[in-house]
């Protein structure tokens, strides 16, 4: 009985994945992908990974979904390329992929009966940091370097997105996100949803220290709400050359860097926190990072500059 929901869920996930690959037009494919993102949030929940479930819902269902849907709308006039492969080749590749799937399943599931794990090590050291959410501890203490570099990856990608602007509009605002058919209900939604979403975003950031949630989930929700306001035409995307925007982009990583270096003097080395202050520092860090993430994600979704700066 307890397996039934899991079985159904897996079937829905694989169905949505097949649809995404096999759908005739790219829009249907994207919609399949968004549905998959929502379903995956449930899968992550079943694997007892609530933090990941929140991330998957916010990114897979929200941010990536909007990104791909807008891309579809803008690519609308361009003909979709047909798969050029013949039926035999398709079958051949399909067979190879199936074999690969079987191989991965065998390699991933065939391990020892008592799989090795770091869970006890995480639990044993968690008191030294003083946070209740082990995932946040891994992200901001044990493996803080990954999180710091991940922010640099985001910034590099944002600069990459910005670099695609034509020379003459560099520094100007991205194309307006205002919907061509912004209807009254939509505008209404864009007015009432952001305050609610803002509270949820802040809650996720704040809660992340002890309960599931955290910077990226909260930051993405904040970004989504800002985008909603822009979609309804209630605000315009800012000029990318604005100093405030640029400072917001680097603010979180800069605070991270400073707190990391302060460990040389205050604690036991780079990226280590002073005893007793770890929780305070991590929560402050999370707030700074979430702010930058919200701006970076929103600007990535808004795209490169498309209008001349004033």
């Amino acid at each position: 009985m307890s397996m039934l929901p899991d079985l159904l869920l897996v079937m829905l996930v694989l169905g949505a994945a097949l649809w995404t690959v096999a759908a005739r037009d790219r829009r249907s494919s994207v919609i399949g992908f968004i549905a998959l993102g929502l379903l995956l949030a449930l899968v992550w929940m079943r694997l007892y990974a609530v933090d990941v479930a929140l991330t998957e819902a916010a990114v897979g269902g929200g941010a990536t979904g909007l990104l791909l849907l807008r891309a579809c709308a803008r690519l609308d006039s361009i003909d979709a390329g047909k798969p050029s492969a013949g039926r035999t080749l398709q079958l051949l590749i399909g067979f190879c992929c199936a074999a690969m799937g079987v191989g991965i399943a065998a390699a991933a599931l065939g391990g020892p009966d008592l799989p090795p794990t770091l869970a006890p090590a995480v639990a044993a050291n968690i008191d030294a940091v003083g946070l209740g959410n082990p995932v946040t501890v891994v992200l901001l203490a044990y493996r803080a370097i990954d999180t710091l570099l991940e922010k640099i990856v985001l910034i590099a990608a944002l600069v990459g997105v910005w670099s695609l602007a034509p020379d003459d509009v560099w520094g100007g605002p991205p194309a307006s996100l205002k919907l061509a058919k912004a209807s009254e209900p939509l505008t209404f939604l864009a007015q009432i949803l952001p305050p609610v979403g803002f509270v949820i975003g802040v809650y996720l950031i704040w809660n992340g220290a002890d309960e599931p949630g955290g910077t990226f989930q909260g930051g993405t929700v904040l970004a989504a709400m800002w985008l909603l306001v822009m979609l309804a035409g209630l605000a315009e995307p800012p000029e990318t050359r604005r100093a405030l925007l640029q400072y917001l982009v680097v603010f979180g990583p800069a605070v991270f860097l400073i707190s990391g270096f302060s460990g040389f003097w205050l604690a036991e080395g780079f990226l280590s926190y002073p005893t007793g202050f770890a929780k305070t520092m991590i929560v402050a860090l999370e707030v700074a990072l979430a702010l930058s993430i919200a701006v970076i994600v929103a600007m990535m979704l808004a795209g490169p500059s498309a209008r001349t700066p004033r």
Partner: peptide, 17 residues
């Protein structure tokens, strides 16, 4: 709720090139 708006944004021709 956000996805509903996103679907609007992805309507064919809403911001087509």
């Amino acid at each position: 709720a956000f996805a509903a708006v996103a679907l609007c944004a992805g309507e064919p021709g809403s911001k087509g090139i």
